[in-house]
Amino acid sequence: MATEFLLENIKKHVTLTPADEEKLAETCQVKRIKKKQFFLQEGEVQRQLVFVIDGCLRSYSVDENGFEHILQFAPPGWWISDMRSMLEQTPASLNIDAVDESEIIVISKSDLDRLYKEIASFDRFFRILSERSIATHQHRLIDSLSLTAKERYTNFCRQYPSLITCLPQKYVASYIGITPEFLSKMLKEPIKK
Results as ranks from 00 to 15, higher is better:
Met1Phe: 13
Met1Leu: 12
Ala2Leu: 09
Glu4Asn: 01
Glu4Phe: 00
Lys11Val: 11
Lys12Gly: 07
His13Cys: 08
Thr15Gly: 03
Asp20Thr: 09
Asp20His: 11
Asp20Pro: 11
Glu21Ala: 12
Glu21Tyr: 13
Leu24Val: 07
Ala25Glu: 11
Gln29Glu: 12
Arg32Thr: 11
Ile33Gly: 00
Lys34His: 07
Phe38Asn: 08
Phe39Thr: 03
Phe39Val: 10
Leu40Trp: 08
Gln41Pro: 01
Gly43Val: 05
Gln48Phe: 08
Leu49Tyr: 03
Val50Cys: 15
Val50Thr: 15
Phe51His: 00
Asp54Ala: 13
Asp54Gly: 10
Cys56Gly: 05
Leu57Val: 08
Tyr60Val: 05
Ser61Cys: 14
Asp63Gly: 01
Asp63Cys: 01
Phe67Asp: 12
Glu68Leu: 05
Ile70Ala: 00
Ile70Asp: 01
Pro75Thr: 02
Pro76Trp: 01
Trp78His: 09
Trp79Glu: 01
Ser81Val: 10
Met83Ala: 10
Met83Asp: 09
Ser85Met: 00
Met86Arg: 06
Leu87Thr: 10
Glu88Ser: 12
Gln89His: 04
Pro91Asn: 06
Ser93Phe: 11
Leu94Glu: 14
Asn95Phe: 13
Val99Asp: 04
Asp100Gln: 12
Ile107Tyr: 10
Ile107Gln: 08
Ile107Ala: 02
Leu112Trp: 15
Leu112Val: 06
Asp113Met: 07
Arg114Ser: 09
Tyr116Asp: 02
Lys117Leu: 09
Lys117His: 09
Glu118Pro: 10
Ile119Cys: 05
Ile119Asn: 02
Ala120Cys: 13
Ala120Pro: 13
Ser121Gln: 07
Asp123Cys: 12
Phe125Ala: 00
Arg127Ile: 06
Ile128Cys: 00
Ile128Ala: 00
Ser130Gly: 12
Arg132Asn: 15
Arg132Gly: 15
Ser133Phe: 15
His137Val: 05
Gln138Ile: 11
His139Ala: 08
Arg140Gly: 00
Leu141Arg: 05
Ile142Leu: 15
Ile142Tyr: 13
Leu145Cys: 02
Ser146Tyr: 14
Lys150His: 03
Asn155Val: 10
Phe156Val: 04
Gln159Met: 12
Tyr160Arg: 13
Tyr160Trp: 14
Pro161Gln: 04
Pro161Ser: 09
Pro161Phe: 05
Leu163Gln: 13
Leu163Glu: 11
Pro168Thr: 08
Lys170Asn: 13
Tyr171Asp: 15
Tyr171His: 15
Ala173Asp: 11
Ser174Asp: 03
Gly177Thr: 04
Pro180Glu: 14
Phe182Leu: 07
Ser184Trp: 08
Ser184Thr: 12
Lys185Asn: 12
Lys185Gln: 14
Leu187Arg: 15
Lys188Thr: 09
Pro190Gln: 06
Lys193Met: 04
